[in-house]
Each structure stands twice: as C-alpha cells, then as structure tokens.
Design a protein around this nucleic acid. Sequence first.
DNA 1: CAGTCGATGTACT
DNA 2: GTACATCGACTGG
Length: 199
Amino acid sequence: MNILPAAFYQRPTLTIARELLGKTFFRHFGGRLLSGRIVEVEAYHQSGDESSHSFRGRGTRNDVMFHAGGQLYVYFTYGMHFCMNVVTEKEGVGAAVLIRALEPLEGIDLMRLHRGEEKRDRDLASGPAKLCQAFGIGREENGLALDGTLVGIADAPKIPSHGIIITPRVGISRSRELPWRFFLADSPWVSSGRPSRPI
DNA sequence: CAGTCGATGTACT
DNA sequence: GTACATCGACTGG
C-alpha cells in the first residue's frame, strides 16, 4: 500500500481535490481497519472564498486548517454532526479539502454498527457527516497526521478528466459561484439530492 | 420522486 | 439573536 506523503498535500488545493478522487481513505479503529474510496470532495480556500472557515482568519476552531498540509481538520456543525477535511498547502495558508462521500470498502459491518443496523450500504458514507459517523471521526481526530499511523490515504491510479464532474459546492450561501465540488461521474456512492449540474 | 422542516451546539454579529 | 460545509422524518404527487 502506497501512502500519500506529506509533500502530496502541500500543493495547490484545487489540484489536490481533483487528485484525491479514486484514492482510499483508511483509519485504524479498535484493532480494525476501516477504508473507503474517495468519490466526492469540495475545496475550501482562504483567499476569495467567503464560505471557507479560514476566510476571516485564524482562530481556535479553525487553527488546524492553517497547519501545513497533511492533517485532518474535523469540525462540529449543526449541533450534532462532524465533517472531515484534508488540510492542504503550506503552514499559514488556511485551505482544505472536504471529504463529502466515500465508497465503503473494508469494515462495512463496523460502519453499519456506527450508522445503524438498518442502513443500506449506500447510506453508510454518502455525505460528509455520514462518513464521519461511519468511520468514528470526531473531535479526537482533529489535527491527526495522515501518515498512516492512525489515519491515511493510499494512492491509486489517476482518474481521467472525463470521469469527473465539477459543480458548485453543496450547502453554502456565500461564494456559491465557485465550481469547487468534484465527484466521480459514474459512482452510485456520491451524496444525493443536491446540485449535480455540470459546469 | 421533490420539497419542507425540526434537531441541537458553537461561533459570530 | 442568527447562521451554520447536515441528516432524517415527513409530506404530497
């Protein structure tokens, strides 16, 4: 297994967002391995992106987003959900890629235990808060290095551009015009019910 | 299928 | 107070 090195993450955020599609996110959980193929992401950047948590500067909540690329940025939202980002760029920049959907690969029984026994496979990780629940990601995982010790992303062949759909991001009100959502065109595992109109 | 809406903690005006 | 990078339950067609 080829784990993406820190240098992979310390590059332009939009490039990384696109390249993360098709790669495998994994985490160790209680002696088990949980993994999923990344099928949907969104980019967030400090400069020119009013919807980014980093737009108004560095603080206690978003501090990890300003770290050097290669860590997890996990935040709590809507009073009950966690969302997981991959921090990008150099120390001090304030950018990240939100993981919006995963295709479950290993540890599906454990994911279902976390999500609810009645859930269908397609409801296990087809949304940013769903996948955090399935993988047991919360406050404790904020700032973890993606070096493969506890969490990491394994490399996979590059997805050709015709296999990727680019749209505006989901669930934001500011900077809506930016086409910074990327997902696999033929994947049944992406989050549903929201803008899927290609640009 | 699509649309609406309540839940519920935290940061910000 | 209000907004929030969401989800699931519910409604009507």
